[in-house]
């Protein structure tokens, strides 16, 4: 197992090279560069820039060089730990991402925990009480969850909160706490705001996860070991939790790692709609304004998370399922 993990880790640098090329090509794909969109923006607001000034800026950012040179300069900087400066924000990228990392994590992990806590019990109940009222109720509920786009749910809930309770639920902090230093009051305020996006984002995932859990468990409930466990005298509840639930969870747990990039990227639209200070909306803005270094860094970061996530999945599955663990040896 250890050898397997080391092998996978050795593969990582190679993958990162491939990913950096893809990320770079992606951000270079739209026509023009940051300055063309910046000029367009200026033009839209009625001002303009001197030709010489544009050329100076272009030289400053290295945008006038051939693409491969730009790529090597970018990668070279990243390798030395310097993520560069955001053209749009005019601030170091590491600072920009760092600021939003904590809240992004809080939202992502919160959503993840919420999803699993709700979805797994629903899946278990639906499967063990197949075709009961409970099962049908959650089937319908789940289809709503899957079919409704999350930004729609967000808009509706925001409207309801504003119209009937007179509260604005956008952002993650109340006005007085936005720039305040961390304190218990600020944490409490964060939790007060965090639950709504967590629920909105969670509903979508919950619905899917519960359906998968139900289907997995239904398969397991038909297996002969169920009858054997009953013949041993185990109570129904204990045996369901010990054997089929455990086996039905395995394929789900093997997908946990895939949530890692989703935790950071999955909420772009909802976070934009709800004005949440997370990484998602920042990526969107960077892409629109062709802030190539910021966008490239975030995309590269997502790709790395996908690789690490898959590795975590594999390790988790091997750890949980002896059939895989012992096969490797």
């Amino acid at each position: 197992m250890l050898i397997y993990i080391i092998k996978r880790l050795l593969l990582l640098p190679f993958l990162l090279v491939v990913f950096s090329v893809i990320a770079f090509l992606l951000i270079q794909a739209p026509p023009g560069d940051f300055l063309t969109s910046y000029i367009a923006e200026l033009a839209a607001s009625g001002s303009s820039m001197e030709r010489a000034q544009i050329d100076a800026l272009r030289a400053l950012y290295g945008l006038d060089q051939p693409m491969y040179l730009q790529y090597f300069k970018w990668v070279g900087r990243i390798l030395t730990g310097d993520l560069g400066v955001s053209l749009d924000w005019q601030r170091p990228i590491s600072q920009l991402i760092g600021e939003r990392m904590g809240l992004t994590l809080a939202l992502g992990l919160g959503t993840f925990v919420f999803t699993w806590l709700i979805a797994i019990p629903i899946g278990i109940f639906s499967a063990t009480r197949k075709y009961s009222f409970f099962d049908y109720f959650f089937t319908v509920f789940n289809y709503f969850g899957v079919a409704t786009p999350t930004f729609m749910t967000a808009l509706v809930l925001m409207w309801i909160a504003f119209k009937y309770y007179g509260v604005s639920v956008t952002g993650l902090f109340s006005a007085e706490y936005i720039d305040a230093p961390w304190s218990w009051g600020r944490v409490a305020d964060l939790l007060q705001h965090l639950w709504l996006p967590v629920v909105i984002l969670g509903l979508d995932g919950t619905a899917r996860l519960a359906r998968v859990m139900r289907a997995n468990l239904l398969d397991e409930l038909k297996k002969p070991y169920m009858e054997m466990a009953r013949a041993k005298g185990l109570s129904e509840w204990r045996l369901v939790m010990k054997y089929p639930v455990r086996l039905a969870l395995n394929p789900l747990i093997s997908t946990i790692g895939w949530y890692l990039p989703l935790i950071f990227s999955g909420s772009v639209i909802v976070a934009t709609v709800m004005n949440l200070p997370t990484i998602g909306p920042m990526l969107l803005r960077a892409l629109i304004s062709q802030d190539m270094f910021l966008a490239g860094t975030i995309i590269l970061f997502y790709m790395m998370l996908a690789v690490v996530g898959t590795l975590i999945s594999d390790i988790l599955l091997a750890w949980l399922d002896p059939r895989i663990r012992l096969d490797e040896e």
């Binding site: 297996k223 002969p224 070991y225 009858e227 054997m228 466990a229 013949a231 054997y243 455990r246 086996l247 395995n250 949980l320 399922d321 002896p322 059939r323």
Partner: peptide
């Protein structure tokens, strides 16, 4: 009970 297929009657995990 001694079941028909011990392979399937034991939990694999």
């Amino acid at each position: 009970l001694i079941p028909q297929e011990p392979m399937a009657a034991f939990s694999p995990v």
